[in-house]
Design a protein around this nucleic acid. Structure first.
Lengths: 191, 191
DNA sequence: GCATTTACCTAAGCCCTATAGGCAAGGGCT
DNA sequence: AGCCCTTGCCTATAGGGCTTAGGTAAATGC
């Protein structure tokens, strides 16, 4: 009887979980589904993961990291509205290309895990694109929160199909929204 | 043996489900939990609900209705920035007072159900507060989407605890955000 | 007062999570 | 090479949630 080991690891399971999330939704990411995908018994996964919560947490951290990388790449060498647009588009594009991972990135992490995650890079990068608008504290924090709300809210509502009922293209609303944000931030500028 | 009927109905189950959602989170709303709450066997609930999906849908519709009522009440007799603020505050206040119901309101509905839900009132009311800003189409649609994104995004991130790491009060960021939106919309005004 | 409806029940099956304990393949050591 | 022992994957088991089938007794209608 030739028994080949499946070669599992927390990393491979995390990646497969991320793919499964994009295909079927983050709520469909279960240890059972993953075990089926690797043609392995469910109990075997517990050698690599403490429980299903750890799997979800790992996928969330992976997604946050991946998204932060893309945003960093997009923003590099840009400033002002150019940076704002690049950031926003990278964010929205990721949410559309990887809906399951994006959903995973919103998975509730405990404070310690969150503090050690790429979530802090997101906040830093948001602050970075605001440099072009010359905002003093606490305005800068307010702006970070407003931008985060718009980006997340838009991606979230768009993913939920909320913008498909009207025949106005979501693309145009997005550009219009970014223009408005830019104008609003310029209006807040200290200078 | 005195057997008293529990007096269940889809409505009572929906309300109890909404309360349970606020107490423990929408994902904790299960038929099992509800059956325990009414001291009844799980199978008994199937006389009143087709399945667990129907329960969640009913809670979602209930929350949408309730939220629409509050918003309608808040914006009545107001216009311009006054209306915008009243709308936004009613929205955010509901999300904070009833986190589980708010989460339920984002439950994915099939197109027909969504079309018959209070979700359309939300869109109408959003358009109504924009009357004070004199926007022509398609700007009006763009603005509806932007406002929806900000309101939902802010409530969502705030509920997830995203604004509790900095010592700047969320209250102030909210006011700042509304001011910025008002300014942006005034800047878009056709006149 | 009887028939029908219906509110709630037991029983059973399926899926997902989780733990305990077993076996054999592979890597490290002599 | 041969041995040990780590460990990757297994079976078995248990508990909880969802759902359906089919039964019984309370409530309702005539």
């Amino acid at each position: 009887m030739v028994v080949v080991r499946a070669g599992l690891s927390a990393e491979r399971l995390t990646l497969a979980g991320a793919e499964l999330a994009d295909e079927a939704g983050f709520d469909q990411v279960t240890l059972s589904a993953l075990a089926r995908r690797f043609d392995v018994r469910v109990a075997s996964l517990y050698s690599h993961l403490k429980n299903s919560h750890e799997l979800k947490t790992r996928i969330a951290l992976f997604a946050l990291e991946e998204l932060a990388d893309r945003v960093a790449d997009a923003v590099a060498g840009r400033a002002g509205k150019d940076a704002l647009t690049a950031f926003a588009n990278a964010y929205r594009d990721y949410a559309r290309a990887h809906p399951g991972r994006y959903e995973a990135a919103r998975y509730r992490l405990d404070p310690q895990t969150a503090a050690a995650s790429a979530g802090v890079r997101h906040a830093q990068m948001t602050r970075a694109i605001l440099r072009g608008y010359d905002l003093a504290e606490p305005d800068q924090t307010h702006a970070v929160r407003m931008l985060g709300s718009v980006f997340h809210g838009y991606a979230s509502l768009e993913a939920a199909g909320g913008f498909s009922h009207t025949d106005v293209a979501s693309e145009e609303s997005w550009a219009w929204t970014l223009d408005s944000l830019d104008a609003a931030l310029r209006g807040r500028s200290a200078s």
